[in-house]
Computed example of a mutant assay.
Amino acid sequence: MDGLVRAWVDGWVVSRGAAPPVREPWGFTVDVGQINQVSRHVFEALGDDVPEGAVRKVADGVTGAGVCLKVFQNPAVVGGWLGDGWWINPEPGYLMTVPLTPGHARAEASEAPEIPAGYRMRGWSVGGVRRLLVAAPDGSLAARGQVALSDAGAKAGTEAVFDQIETAPAHQRRGLGSLVMRTLQATAAAEGARTGVLAGTPAGRALYETLGWHVAAMLTNAKFTGAGD
């Protein structure tokens, strides 16, 4: 799992157009520049290796609303480390990985479900991010997703970070999520990626595991909302 978090951070930065990560003793700081997420502190350790003292110290030093923490440990555990003013998502996230082999592109392409009648799928690339859109028959968004190749580590480009995978509620249970993921996995594999990385929700985890993904660690998402809140 060495370098997994760094790969996720680097790929996420490319995917979202955020500032390059700043290396910290405990992980990384990323400036995002949004009202609801000004910056994020991402701890590099996983599970029981997460340093409680470092999390407490970083959290206690936050004074501005909109600063987020990403800690790869159970929210029930991390919640006890944070003081007043921190909102903690009670629903855990999951850091997940999947191997992408040289033959993955052909396999994924052959196993991807067909596009339902009336739907339209289009893919394009901008700034190192490969994006995919599935439009409904009426032109509204049915499903989407994107993937960015990470620049982390000595083997730059061997990790692909999957991001913003979404299926609109009205279009779920039609195989669109699987269609998007298999198409993006094939795209990443064809471009030389050998490992897929993502941070998923419990609902997303169910889909990803059917596609061969495995959980590397739980993820706590926390945001500072202001002292006294």
Rank of each mutant, 00 (worst) to 15 (best):
V129R: 08
N89F: 03
D84M: 08
G175N: 04
L184V: 02
A156N: 06
G200H: 00
W12I: 07
G212L: 02
E91S: 13
A18G: 11
V5N: 01
H214A: 15
Q146I: 00
Q185K: 13
T167F: 02
D229R: 14
W8E: 12
L198H: 07
V42N: 05
G103A: 00
I35M: 12
P25D: 05
V134C: 07
P99C: 08
G145P: 00
W8F: 14
L211R: 10
V71D: 08
V197E: 05
M218D: 12
V215I: 15
S140W: 10
R174I: 02
C68S: 01
A193S: 11
A65T: 13
D49K: 01
E44V: 10
G80M: 01
G64K: 08
W8D: 12
W213Y: 15
L184P: 03
D138C: 00
A193Q: 12
P51R: 04
V58T: 01
E111P: 04
A65Y: 12
E111F: 12
V77S: 05
Q34P: 06
E44Y: 11
T187L: 13
L198C: 04
T187Q: 14
P202E: 01
V98T: 02
G226Q: 09
W124R: 03
V197Q: 00
L69E: 06
W124T: 08
G93L: 00
Q172F: 08
T29G: 00
V197M: 05
E91R: 01
T101P: 06
P202D: 07
T101G: 07
P92A: 06
T97D: 10
E91N: 09
L82M: 08
D163R: 03
A107S: 13
A199W: 02
G33I: 11
R205L: 06
G139S: 07
